[in-house]
Amino acid sequence: MQPDEMIGKLTEARRLLREVRDGTDLPQIQSILGHADQNLHWALWNLGEVDGLRPELSEEH
């Protein structure tokens, strides 16, 4: 898979993940998904996609 395609799928994964996180009030699930979002942000960063220095900042955009 080429980097551009990976970036597209990872960006979509972040969007889906946030939907689940925002739709639950289970602290454990929110925590796990917070870590997952951080990892997805890091994967994007290491593919050359720069969208905020911290995941929560790119969420605010």
């Binding site: 951080q38 990892n39 942000h41 890091w42 911290r54 995941p55």
Partner: peptide
């Protein structure tokens, strides 16, 4: 460090 900072530093 934030938690994310530690992950990135370790990398």
């Amino acid at each position: 460090y934030t938690l994310y900072d530690t992950e990135r530093y370790g990398e």
